[in-house]
Simulated assay, not measured.
Amino acid sequence: MYTIRSKNFIKFKNPEKTISVIRAEIDCDSVSDLPAVDDISGCELAQGSIAWVINDARFYGLNSEGQWCVQTGGSNNE
């Protein structure tokens, strides 16, 4: 399970303005709960979104390829 703690609107992805690109702060229980870039209905997560994985006590950052990378301790592993 994940919860969006906060989000910032960046832009609309399409001309119809039906998909918002957002940068988000996310809390989740485990790594398997981290959402994919397009998992949130009507939104797409932008590079630089961050997530706190509570059970692992680690922070993750979303890179430009849509992958969550460990930020805690300077490691770049998913």
Rank of each mutant, 00 (worst) to 15 (best):
P35T: 00
A36G: 09
I10K: 11
S20V: 03
D38A: 15
D56S: 13
T72C: 09
I54N: 09
Q71D: 03
Q67M: 10
I22D: 01
N55P: 00
V37C: 13
G48I: 05
W52A: 11
K11W: 04
G66V: 06
S64M: 05
A36E: 12
T3R: 14
D39K: 02
S20E: 15
R23W: 02
M1L: 04
S41T: 07
S30Q: 09
K7G: 03
I50H: 03
C43L: 06
V53N: 11
Y60V: 10
S32Q: 10
L45C: 10
D56H: 09
I22W: 04
G48Q: 08
I22S: 01
G61W: 04
S75I: 15
A57V: 01
G61S: 08
Q47L: 08
D56W: 04
C28V: 11
K7S: 13
D38R: 12
K7N: 04
K11Y: 05
E44V: 09
E25G: 05
C69V: 14
L62P: 02
S20W: 00
V37Y: 07
E25W: 06
M1T: 13
V31W: 09
F59C: 01
D29M: 13
E65H: 05
P35D: 00
I26R: 00
G42F: 14
A57W: 01
L62S: 06
N55K: 10
G73C: 10
I54P: 00
N14K: 06
T72L: 01
